[in-house]
Deep mutational scan, measured.
Amino acid sequence: EQYVVVANYQKQESSEISLSVGQVVDIIEKNESGWWFVSTAEEQGWVPATCLEGQ
């Protein structure tokens, strides 16, 4: 499942990744806490779901 990044995010923990507007990410896991585990071409990590929008 692919989502587009709609807000920049700077990682704050080692388990997170930074996002840039316009990036496309694959969703691996959706957590009810509002944090999703995603994959980019370069890395995987947790990001806030509020930064993502379905395609």
Rank of each mutant, 00 (worst) to 15 (best):
E32L: 06
I27M: 08
V6W: 05
F37L: 14
E43Y: 07
V47G: 03
A49I: 15
S33I: 04
Q44Y: 04
Q2T: 09
S39Q: 12
G34K: 08
I17T: 10
S15V: 10
T40M: 11
E53L: 07
S14M: 12
G34Q: 03
T50L: 09
F37V: 09
N31G: 14
E42H: 15
Q55W: 05
W35S: 12
V38E: 01
V38M: 01
D26F: 06
N8C: 12
P48W: 01
D26L: 11
C51E: 00
N31A: 10
L52Q: 00
W35V: 10
L52K: 02
Q55F: 01
V24A: 13
A49Q: 05
E32Q: 13
L52P: 01
E1R: 03
V6A: 15
D26P: 00
Y9H: 04
E29D: 10
E42C: 11
N8A: 15
E13R: 08
C51H: 05
S33W: 04
S39H: 08
W36P: 01
C51D: 02
E32C: 08
E53V: 09
C51F: 07
Q12H: 10
W35D: 08
C51W: 02
A41N: 06
C51K: 06
L52Y: 00
C51L: 06
V25F: 00
F37D: 04
V24W: 11
I28L: 12
L52F: 11
I28P: 01
A49G: 13
S39N: 13
W46N: 05
T50Q: 08
W46D: 02
E43K: 08
Q12L: 08
W35Q: 14
S20Q: 09
G22L: 00
I28R: 07
E29F: 02
V6S: 11
E29H: 15
E32P: 11
A49N: 14
K30F: 04
S33K: 15
T40Y: 08
V6K: 15
P48Q: 03
V24C: 12
T40G: 07
G34T: 04
D26K: 14
V5F: 01
G22R: 03
P48G: 00
K11A: 10
D26Y: 06
A41G: 10
G22P: 01
W35P: 02
E43N: 14
T50S: 12
N31H: 10
L19Q: 01
V4L: 15
E13Q: 15
S20N: 15
I27Q: 02
I17Q: 02
V24G: 08
N8F: 06
V47N: 00
Q10E: 15
I28W: 07
Q10D: 06
D26M: 09
K30C: 04
V5N: 00
S33Y: 11
V5R: 00
N31P: 07
D26A: 12
Y3D: 08
Q55I: 10
I27S: 04
Y9F: 14
V6L: 07
P48V: 01
A41D: 06
Q2F: 08
G22S: 03
V25W: 00
L52C: 07
A7R: 11
N8M: 05
A49V: 07
Y3L: 06
G54S: 12
E53N: 07
S39C: 13
T40C: 07
A41H: 13
E16C: 03
W46E: 01
S14W: 08
K30A: 08
Q44M: 09
A41E: 15
G22K: 01
Q12T: 13
G45L: 04
E13F: 07
V21R: 13
F37T: 03
T50N: 08
V4S: 15
K30W: 02
Q2S: 12
E13N: 12
A41Y: 07
Y3H: 03
Q2K: 11
W35E: 08
D26C: 06
L19P: 01
A49S: 12
S39R: 13
L19I: 08
W46Q: 04
